[in-house]
Design a binder for these strands. Structure first.
Length: 470
DNA sequence: TTCGTAAACGCCTGGGGCCA
DNA sequence: TGGCCCCAGGCGTTTACGAA
């Protein structure tokens, strides 16, 4: 990260949200920088949309995700290339951007045309800073926050810090370059996280299907896609060591009782095997129509996409002795020959999930895994002592990998914080970037940056599931 | 008990209508 | 034109329910 210094001299802007600004900067009302463009009757132009995520872009009419009701294109407003357009209902959330081409926007949007001393990209950065959005909120009107609108009359009263046009351009180029660099960093970290997750899965797969000692003798498992297994392991099927969907009559509980037990809907089971036991229901509520299980059982989701995502859990930490859950689970009760945690790993391996996908039955989109597939799933089974050693090994290796993943996720968060803070500091004049040389950025890199910057905020909580197509 | 499928639900994005 | 309310529609996920 580069070392940046403040400007040599400052003056009071008179605006609490800005504080001091460089002495050579101006503070103008937006009405001094932009005029409203209210032109209609250009029905042949492409439709533009403004959203919180993507700023302004051309709407893809051929691959519309939703059918937009478009009353009359002639009533849509024209936004010329380089104008700023904002969604008046969402401006306080940052729904603003620069029109990439001449196009049309909804009559509910506001289009502003820049005067010659304005570089719209600089103002697009400024308008999306947290402090400016707060100010927008204060200038917006509406009876509830969610419906606050920023009308042109109010927008034009808002003050903005204004460097010279040359400095605006330099700042914009600088921020584009920094953003591009940050995005590359984040992309690489995401790749790393993806690889680490894969590595963790491989550690598990390797350990539960081939054991820990690569030097021992192997024998053919008899199943082509499993390959060889250690010679002293049993080649068997899950149904030989697991009982399926045990009967609730074993609880000897009275179904009419008002006793409360844990209830697990699908959403309370996570893909990493954690369960949320906070939901409790009475026996009379759940006795009929739901799946029964007890502490120490293993559950596997059978419906798409839960199965494909590997949803399932080892119910070691179930808060009540037994409980009930959605019928979209298969309940597996481990025998003495197999440890519950080992069983959970076996039913979350890549092989199990990929093969299971091929056996899915039912209507597209809502398929289920047949219980026969699970019952007849072939496995290599080590002696119970060895299973425990394997579990210990997985735990140790997973902890190391999890640590590396957390570190990478934290680095991404820090980079985003740095980028956001830097943009805010630069466009409000808190740091001086005039003397810093800006590297050239290719146009396609710039376009990618615009998309990525918008997407990035959504991905913060879920780094692993991102589409790594680039 | 298993399976097929409709429907509910939440989230998200964005636009239209009505009235003053 | 402004102010406000409500609706449309996509999509993924999950539940509910009835038939086999």
């Amino acid at each position: 990260m580069m070392k940046l210094a403040p400007y040599p001299e400052y003056k009071d802007s008179g605006q609490p949200f800005l504080g001091d600004i460089p002495v050579h900067w101006n503070l103008f009302r937006n009405g001094r920088l932009f005029s409203q463009r209210n032109e209609t009757g250009f029905g042949e132009l492409p439709i533009l949309e403004v959203s919180l995520k993507t700023g302004v872009r051309v709407r893809d009419m051929e691959n519309l995700k939703r059918k937009q009701v478009m009353a009359d294109r002639e009533k849509y407003k024209r936004a010329a290339q380089g104008d700023i357009a904002y969604n008046m209902m969402r401006m306080w959330q940052g729904a603003v951007g620069v029109a990439p081409v001449d196009g049309l926007v909804s009559p509910a949007y506001v289009v502003v045309r820049p005067f010659p001393e304005v570089d719209c990209r600089y103002f697009s950065y400024l308008f999306r800073t947290a402090s400016y959005m707060n100010e927008v909120d204060a200038y917006s009107r509406g009876i509830v926050k969610d419906r606050n609108r920023l009308y042109w009359q109010d927008f034009k009263r808002m003050p903005s810090p204004v460097p010279s046009i040359e400095e605006q351009r330099h700042i914009t180029s600088f921020l584009d370059a920094v953003g591009s660099k940050a995005q590359r960093f984040i992309r690489n970290k995401r790749r790393l996280i993806g690889l680490l997750k894969e590595q963790k899965q491989n550690v598990i797969n390797q350990a539960v299907t081939r054991g820990l000692d690569p030097k021992i003798k192997f024998k053919p498992s008899g199943v082509e896609w499993i390959g060889d297994i250690p010679e002293h392991w049993d080649a068997t099927k899950l149904k030989r060591v697991v009982s399926f969907n045990p009967s609730k009559s074993e609880t000897r509980a009275n179904p009419a009782d008002e006793e409360k037990v844990v209830f697990l809907p699908m959403e309370n089971i996570s893909v990493n095997g954690d369960i949320d036991c906070s939901e409790k229901r009475t026996l009379s509520e759940v006795w009929n129509g739901f799946n029964y299980f007890r502490r120490g059982d293993v559950v596997v989701a059978k419906i798409t996409p839960c199965f494909e995502n590997g949803k399932g859990a080892y119910l070691k930490g179930l808060e009540s002795d037994f409980g009930f859950g959605t019928t979209e689970l298969i309940v597996l009760r481990p025998s003495k020959a197999i440890d519950g945690a080992f069983l959970r790993f076996l039913t979350s391996t890549k092989q199990f999930l990929l093969l299971g996908e091929q056996y899915m039955t039912g209507a597209a989109g809502q398929q289920r895994i047949p219980s026969d597939f699970v019952k007849n799933y072939p496995i290599g089974l080590p002696p119970i002592d060895e299973q425990l050693e394997i579990l210990e090994h997985i735990q140790e290796k997973s902890a190391e990998i999890d640590q590396a993943i957390s570190r990478a996720q934290r680095e991404i968060e820090l980079m985003r914080e740095y980028r956001t803070r830097l943009i805010s500091d630069v466009v409000t004049g808190h740091v001086d970037v005039r003397g810093i040389e800006v590297p050239e950025i290719a146009e396609d890199e710039l376009l990618a940056l615009e998309e990525d910057t918008a997407d990035a905020d959504d991905e913060i909580d879920d780094e692993g599931d991102m589409d790594e197509t680039d």
